Simulated scan of single mutants.
Amino acid sequence: MQLSVYLSGEIHTDWREQIINGCKEHGLDIEFTSAVTDHDASDAAGDLLGAEDKQFWRDHKSAKVNAIRIKTLLETCDVAVIRFGEKYKQWNAAFDAGYCAALGTPYITLHNEDIIHPLKEVDASAMAWATTPEQVVEILKYTVKQK
């Protein structure tokens, strides 16, 4: 079984690489996709449409250009992994989780125990909650390899 897995959420740690490498080590047939994880490039995605004087309109245009990629990948993935990190509030990740829930796309949340309460609704719609990338790898391994 081949899966398409979308990796959503914080971009300040190597959790994506840990999951990708862990799945490779197990020989899992998984295609991984993600939003643009270069923060500066993501913020500048709308600049190709022309410069803006106000930050709101720059952010607005960039969000829409980024959404072309994100929306398409979320709509076509089999499973999403939604990572909530410690350093910043990932409103985009919460939005991605809500979009998955609306689409009926299974998703796994990945976060520490200290933010269970603020994410209770997000976790309630998730198929699983993991606290480590290794747990995500094990869930994906079970999904792909069990008969």
Rank of each mutant, 00 (worst) to 15 (best):
Arg83Ser: 09
Asn21Leu: 07
Asp123Gln: 07
Arg69Leu: 13
Pro118Asn: 08
Cys23Arg: 02
Trp91Ala: 12
Gly46Met: 02
Asp38Ser: 09
Pro133Glu: 07
Ile116Trp: 05
Lys64Thr: 08
Glu31Ile: 12
Tyr107Ile: 00
Tyr142Arg: 10
His60Pro: 00
Ala97Glu: 00
Glu10Leu: 05
Gln135Phe: 08
Glu75Asp: 14
Ala45Leu: 10
Ala130Tyr: 07
Gln18Lys: 11
Thr131Arg: 15
Gly85Ser: 01
Glu134Phe: 10
Lys87Gly: 03
Ala102Gly: 10
Ile108Tyr: 03
Val122Ile: 15
Thr143Leu: 15
Ala45Phe: 08
Asn112Val: 12
Pro118Ser: 06
Gln18Leu: 06
Glu52Phe: 07
Pro133Trp: 09
Asp96Lys: 01
Asp38Val: 08
Ser34Arg: 05
Ala126Lys: 10
Phe95Val: 10
Asp29Met: 06
Arg83Gln: 06
Thr13Phe: 11
Glu52Trp: 07
Ala102Trp: 12
Ile116Asp: 15
Glu75Ile: 04
Ala101Ile: 00
Thr132Met: 13
Ile115Phe: 01
Val79Phe: 08
Lys87Ala: 09
Cys77Lys: 01
Glu10Lys: 04
Lys24Leu: 10
Asp114Met: 05
Gln90Ile: 07
Thr132Val: 11
Glu113His: 10
Asp14His: 13
Ser125Phe: 15
Ile82Cys: 12
Ser34Val: 00
Val144Asp: 04
